[in-house]
Design a protein around this nucleic acid. Structure first.
Lengths: 332, 332
DNA sequence: ACGTGCTAATGAATCGATTCAATATCTGAT
DNA sequence: ATCAGATATTGAATCGATTCATTAGCACGT
């Protein structure tokens, strides 16, 4: 393995000079620099990051732990975070916790041992003790899609109450009055918030009513099951507007209700989802939805982390983004 | 920052002993070990991986670069790779190249500098020169979903010719004779292979014919466009079986043709996709498809890499998996 | 010729964990 | 009491890049 010393010998300079060529090129005379660079590519020298980090104490990597890489929300967030990090020439190392505390813990351990600059994490359940440990060890952390009630660390998240409000308000202004909310257990904070927003909107219209349907999960299949349950009531008993807690549910509901003879979306039933995943616009009837500013969240998360790294003692910041209504065929 | 020396001082032992507690616990007397472990958790000591790696030369991480984390094929492959790596207590660091050569190169650089044990990569286009460089630097590599024609490195991939064959053969045995293949450009090796397999199957039936339709991309929208093009011909001009080069295309095609009045899937038109993504089984009509053994591929890729790491000079191995036919409502 | 001021290059000390030859300590047998 | 042999512990040397105080080299003015 080629080391900086081999390069120095071959180029007839001191090791310090080679180091300067790499890190402070303008301190080295042009001629020398060229000579060294030539030797570097000749020998195929690759800087040993372990040694660099050990001595300099600085790391160029950021750890990112997401709940599920196959969820488009997280994958596009991760992509944006990578882009932003690259601009401050850092690299994002991605870990997928799969909603599993054990995996999450393993990644946190590895990231700590590797002395990453900081960690972005969308935590599984309660991570109070882990948070405390990371803080004790001085590892900067930023929460993603979650806030720390105690405001110890910075976070980026979305105002889901506002999102739920705008989804339902949208259908109400279009004349719908019998609204249904379909979501999984309100144990999930995000689902609870979206429902709260829905309730606020309905409360503004005395003649409107809101029905809550609990689905088994946040998947297409669970959505279809919920839709079939509604369909059994016959056309008379149906709501005229449905708000689903995410797009997958909405797509499932759409599949189920479209099988009802003669029922049309949006004429007879308006339908709106949440997240704006790719499938939303390519559904049989293009799906209206509430979009979260995913890219912006990814970029901002990195920026908050860089901030936290720079001035360690500074106060934390909670950035909450407003979601955006996307109207398509399903609510026209 | 707490170092091994601080631990040694506090526990009144030599640094070597602390190191042994961490790496060769059985060489240390029980009493001493306990004392040291207590001090470690008291002080919150976390091993500095940079120093460990620098001296010991060993790394516990594997780099994985995929084309697109949001593609379910890659995300589930990554998950399986992580599981397998964890069993040999290594960790997978995931990089997303987004089909971009620049990103791919950046991740390769970072992984080399971090001296990962090895790299798993699903390469963007031609990576001959990069491969050569990695080999020159002694970094073990395993290709994923791609083979090296020169067999320099090991690889895991799928027999897409067989996959195309079984998809079309399946429809032929169900009595279909006017088959259409819908895929993006055959510049993509995988698409070309699936078409070859389709042609082989059709060749076995003298009265069968195969039509090739080129879609703009491998997405739902492109599939829908292709489906609408077919639909314009009217019911008489339609094929009776369609094989799409992936599930997204098939879902788009399904959306388009279901809008044709009175046309039924599978009675009038059989449809089969490729990949078995989650959406396949939850489509309006559950979609038959060809499944690739994703988890097995991920695990195997890690195993080939570990092999390559152990005996550096050994010959490479090309593992090619057979895909599996999954029949659902769309071809019954 | 000499001093001043500047740029360029040097190389030893350093980061923290691991390794291993050397040493200390203990056990049990004689 | 002594010694062989096993077991436990020690601590200096090491990995490779960075840092920085020091030295070398050079140009210019007097």
């Amino acid at each position: 393995m080629v080391s900086i010393k081999d390069v120095a010998d071959q180029a007839q300079v001191a090791v310090g000079t080679v180091s300067n060529v790499l890190n402070n090129p303008d301190r080295v005379a042009e001629k020398t620099r060229e000579r060294v660079l030539n030797v570097i590519s000749e020998l195929g020298f690759v800087r040993n990051d372990a040694a660099r980090q050990l001595r300099a104490g600085l790391s160029r990597t950021i750890g990112l732990i997401v709940l599920d890489v196959s969820n488009p929300f997280f994958s596009s967030l991760a992509r944006a975070a990578e882009d932003r990090a690259a601009e401050s020439d850092s690299t994002v190392l991605l870990g997928d916790s799969c909603h599993d505390v054990g995996r999450e813990g393993r990644y946190l351990d590895v990231f700590e041992q590797q002395r990453v600059k900081g960690v972005l994490i969308s935590p599984v359940g309660n991570i109070d003790s882990r948070l405390e440990q990371l803080r004790a060890h001085g590892v900067p952390v930023v929460l993603v899609d979650r806030v720390d009630p105690q405001r110890r660390v910075s976070s980026v998240s979305v105002d889901d109450v506002a999102g739920g409000y705008m989804a339902v308000k949208h259908m109400l202004t279009r004349g719908r009055r019998r609204i249904a909310f379909i979501g999984a257990s309100t144990d999930i904070q995000q689902v609870a918030d979206r429902l709260t927003g829905a309730q606020q909107a309905v409360a503004e219209y005395p003649d409107a009513e809101l029905e809550v349907v609990e689905a088994a999960a946040m998947t297409v299949l669970a959505g279809r099951a919920a839709g079939e349950l509604l369909a059994e009531r016959g056309r008379g008993g149906l709501p005229d507007g449905i708000f689903c807690a995410n797009d997958l549910l909405a797509i499932g509901v759409m599949q189920a209700v479209l099988l009802i003879r003669g029922l049309r979306i949006p004429e007879d039933l308006a339908l709106i989802g949440y997240d704006d995943i790719d499938f939303a616009q390519s559904a049989v009837v293009p799906l209206s939805t509430v979009r979260r500013p995913t890219e912006l969240m990814g970029r901002t998360a990195v920026e908050l982390l860089l901030e936290a790294i720079d001035r360690t003692a500074a106060e934390s910041r909670q950035v909450i983004f407003q979601p955006e209504l996307v109207t398509r065929g399903s609510t026209l």
